[in-house]
Amino acid sequence: MDDLAGFLRTRRSRVDPSAVGIPADSRRRVDGLRREEIAHLSGVSVDYYVRLEQGRATQPSEQVLDALARVLGLDDTEREHLYRLARQRKRRTKTPSARLRPELLRMLDLIDAPALIMNHRLDALAGNRLAELLYGRRLPGLNTAHHIFLEEAERGLYADWETCTRDAVGHLRLAVGKYPDDPRLASLIGELSMGSERFRKLWARADVRARTHGPKPYQHPLVGRLELHQENFAVPDDSGLELLILSADPDSPSADALRLLARLGEDHVPEPHVVDQL
Rank of each mutant, 00 (worst) to 15 (best):
G6N: 08
G6C: 14
S13G: 07
D16W: 01
P17G: 13
P17E: 12
A19F: 03
I22W: 05
D25P: 03
R27T: 13
R29M: 08
R29D: 01
D31V: 11
L33Y: 09
R35T: 07
E36H: 09
S42Y: 14
G43R: 12
Y48H: 14
Y48N: 11
Y49I: 09
V50L: 10
Q54A: 13
R56A: 10
T58C: 04
S61P: 13
L65R: 14
R70G: 09
R70K: 13
L72P: 06
G73Y: 09
D75G: 06
T77Q: 13
T77E: 15
R84A: 14
R91Q: 12
R92M: 07
T93I: 14
A98N: 15
L100S: 03
E103K: 00
R106Y: 00
M107K: 01
L108E: 00
D109N: 09
I111R: 01
A113L: 02
P114E: 05
A115W: 01
I117E: 04
M118T: 04
L122A: 03
A124F: 05
L125D: 00
L125F: 02
L125S: 02
G127T: 04
G127F: 04
G136P: 08
R138C: 00
L139Q: 04
P140H: 03
G141T: 00
H147M: 05
H147K: 02
I148K: 07
I148Y: 00
F149S: 00
L150C: 15
E154N: 10
E154H: 11
L157A: 03
Y158R: 03
A159I: 02
W161E: 03
T163H: 10
C164V: 10
G170T: 11
G170F: 10
R173N: 14
L174W: 09
A175F: 11
G177N: 13
K178Q: 13
Y179Q: 04
Y179R: 13
D181V: 09
D181I: 12
P183Y: 15
A186L: 07
A186S: 12
S187I: 05
S187N: 01
L188S: 03
I189T: 08
G190M: 12
L192K: 11
L192E: 11
L192S: 07
L192W: 04
L192Q: 12
L192V: 15
S193N: 12
F199Y: 14
R205F: 05
A206L: 13
D207F: 06
L222G: 15
V223F: 05
R225L: 00
R225E: 01
L226A: 12
E227D: 15
N232R: 12
F233M: 11
V235Q: 01
E242M: 07
I245L: 12
A248W: 06
P250M: 04
P250N: 06
P250L: 11
S252G: 08
A255W: 07
A257Q: 13
A257T: 09
A257I: 10
A257D: 03
L258S: 07
R259L: 05
L261G: 03
L261S: 00
R263L: 15
E266Y: 08
V269R: 15
V269K: 13
V269Q: 15
V269P: 01
P270R: 09
H273W: 11
